[in-house]
């Protein structure tokens, strides 16, 4: 089935979204054209604007249209406490869950030598210059994967050099988890990271 060129182009472009194949893209395109022209037009405007003006925060590297993001600018945030995460999507997760009042640093990835991602690609020299400033504790909230662990270890070494205290988030049993259903790796980590009550 062939559509008029413009509709076909729209469908093809919608396929760039994650999890959207030709079928869903077609449904989206027809929905916008048939039922929600206004919404479609607004989407196109904001999409163009966002693609054009969203950049990275100069201090924490997260996505932001301002030179310095709202969290880094806020006077209520403790600038001595820094949380290192892998992606911008980790920030809202932590904001929602933890009573965390420090600032962030977004790596935009993790160390992965096989894929050719080393310390330079992650902007770790920028992080080192932050350590030289007023940061007193860095919380390493990278993923619990081999690459995330390697990244955390590397940053911990960097922090030690600048006499910044480095801590790693705890790993273990999830809330509501029953021990017999937890995989052995997680359980062994939970035992290694046990603490006194």
């Amino acid at each position: 089935m062939s559509y008029s060129p413009l509709i076909q182009q729209l469908i093809n472009r919608l396929c760039v979204l994650p999890g959207v194949g030709p079928k869903s893209a077609q449904r989206m395109a027809f929905h916008l054209l048939q039922r929600d022209r206004e919404g479609g037009a607004a989407l196109s405007v904001v999409l163009a604007e966002a693609m054009d003006s969203v950049g990275q925060c100069q201090q924490c590297q997260t996505l932001s249209e301002a030179d310095v993001c709202a969290i880094c600018r806020s006077p209520h945030r403790d600038k001595g406490l820094m949380c290192v995460v892998e992606t911008p999507a980790n920030i809202p997760a932590i904001e929602q869950a933890a009573h965390y009042n420090g600032v962030y640093f977004v790596l935009m990835g993790h160390l992965s030598p096989i894929d050719g991602i080393g310390p330079e690609q992650l902007g770790l020299d920028k992080l080192a210059s932050r350590f030289a400033g007023d940061v007193t504790e860095v919380i390493l909230a990278t993923n619990l994967t081999v690459e995330g662990e390697a990244t955390a270890h590397y940053i911990a070494q960097l922090a030690e050099k600048h006499q910044v205290k480095a801590t790693r988030i705890a790993h273990g049993v999830p809330v509501g988890g029953e021990l017999e259903y937890i995989d052995e790796n997680t359980l062994s980590l939970a035992f290694q990271g046990r603490r006194e009550l």
């Binding site: 030598p113 096989i114 081999v146 662990e149 390697a150 270890h153 052995e184 790796n185 062994s188």
Partner: peptide, 24 residues
């Protein structure tokens, strides 16, 4: 089915990544 659970830390981890890159 996991047979051997491996937990490398710090320098061991870098060495492990080196082994893997070498093999690949």
């Amino acid at each position: 089915d996991t047979l051997t659970h491996i937990n490398l830390q710090g320098t061991q981890l870098y060495c492990g990544m080196y082994l893997n890159e070498l093999v690949v």
